[in-house]
Simulated assay, not measured.
Amino acid sequence: MLKVLLVLHDGKDYIRMNKVFFEELPIKGQYIVNSDGLAYLVEEVTTFANYVTSKGAIGIVVVHQAPRDEPVSQLYGLNIEEDLDD
């Protein structure tokens, strides 16, 4: 598992969201769904070269929220606790 810092780009500012785990790093242009149930479009992915931290993060994924009227925002009407957790 790869731990990265998820950062929201809201058009003018960059806002730290949370640390997340991925099996594989997403790529620019890919949609991801965060634990808040919202779809985000990946803008940039960075990884740290030769960097060791006690917090374990290996990179930064910059995202912006997908518009609510796009199909990807409506496709994932999931309740994380009910639909994905065992």
Results as ranks from 00 to 15, higher is better:
V4H: 01
Y40C: 01
V20P: 02
G29T: 04
Q30T: 03
E70I: 15
K28W: 04
G77H: 14
V45S: 01
N79T: 15
V72E: 10
T47S: 14
S54E: 15
H64F: 03
K19Y: 13
G59S: 06
G59M: 00
D86S: 12
H64D: 02
E23G: 05
E70D: 13
L5P: 00
A57D: 13
T46Q: 12
V72M: 12
G37V: 12
G29F: 06
S35Y: 10
R16H: 12
L78Y: 14
R68H: 13
T46D: 10
D83E: 14
F21R: 13
D86W: 09
H64Q: 07
A49F: 07
N79L: 14
S73H: 07
G56K: 10
A39E: 06
I27S: 15
D10Q: 10
L25M: 11
T47G: 04
N18G: 01
V45A: 02
K55D: 12
G11H: 06
V62P: 00
K28E: 11
V62W: 02
R16A: 12
M1D: 08
I58R: 03
F21K: 12
S35V: 08
E43R: 08
F48Q: 10
D86E: 15
R68G: 05
S35C: 06
L5D: 11
E82R: 15
D83C: 13
L8A: 03
V45Q: 00
G59I: 00
K28Y: 05
Q30R: 12
Y14Q: 12
E43F: 01
P67H: 09
N18E: 15
L41F: 02
V33Y: 00
I27L: 09
K12H: 12
N18W: 11
D85T: 12
A49L: 13
I58D: 01
R16F: 08
H64N: 10
N34C: 11
V4N: 02
V7I: 15
S35N: 06
I60C: 03
A39G: 06
S73A: 15
N50F: 06
I58T: 06
E43Y: 02
Y31L: 13
D36Q: 09
E43V: 00
D10R: 05
K55H: 10
L6V: 08
R68I: 07
I32G: 00
E81N: 14
I15R: 08
A57H: 05
E24Y: 09
G56L: 05
E70Y: 13
N50C: 04
F21E: 15
E81T: 08
I60G: 01
K12F: 09
K28F: 03
L25H: 02
E23K: 09
I15M: 07
G29N: 06
P26F: 01
D69K: 15
L41Q: 06
I32M: 03
A57W: 02
K12I: 13
T46C: 04
S73P: 03
E81H: 08
Y31E: 11
E82I: 08
H64P: 01
V7M: 15
D36L: 12
V62T: 05
F22W: 06
A66I: 04
E24M: 07
D13I: 06
T46G: 10
I15H: 10
A39R: 01
